[in-house]
Write a protein that binds this DNA or RNA. Structure first.
Lengths: 84, 84
DNA sequence: TATATATTTAGACAAATATCTAAATACTTT
DNA sequence: AAAGTATTTAGATATTTGTCTAAATATATA
């Protein structure tokens, strides 16, 4: 839970998730969507991956990232404990 | 949304919310539940309050904190955008 | 009014974080 | 094999964060 909230505590990373919600993307495509250096985006992707919020798969010289919605379920459950 | 995720990105603050989920508590009662100084807890309460996750009301020399579940709805909605 | 209790504010400090540039690794193409 | 493209790793740096102690503020009580 710590890793998840840590990962979500950054606007850039939340935007990355918003992008991946729409379609899988390579690291480069993701980086192109931001005004931030590729190494920094790579670091953000690493944090998201450690939190299991995304997965990656190598495809030739590209690395394709996908969102992992099952982890969101954990957050959802935590939030729901406050809903009554 | 930034303030909310920032507030949730700390185990102590999430525990404070878990406590307040059960009942309203004074700052002192909350502090007593942790092995952390009162000023530090006061600081955590401030961050939770800025995020609107809790409210406070003065009662004599005590300040009583309550959870504000309506803000959780915002997080819930954000999470739900990933659920399909 | 003086003392005790509850809480916050102020200021300091070590640890964590987001960012950068330069270099390394891995794959593709010529 | 050499050159180009994609991505990460390494190392540096400024900012943010969580914590502390000491002091200030506010209320209650003797």
């Amino acid at each position: 839970m710590n890793d998840i909230f840590k990962a979500l505590n950054d606007a850039t990373r939340r935007e990355i998730l918003d992008l991946l919600k729409q379609k899988d993307m390579s690291a480069g495509e993701i980086a192109d969507a931001f005004n931030i250096s590729k190494p920094s985006i790579s670091h953000h992707l690493d944090i998201l991956k450690r939190a299991d919020l995304i997965t990656s798969e190598k495809n030739g010289q590209f690395i394709i990232y996908s969102i992992n919605t099952t982890i969101m379920e954990d957050v959802l459950q935590w939030i729901l404990t406050f809903k009554q």
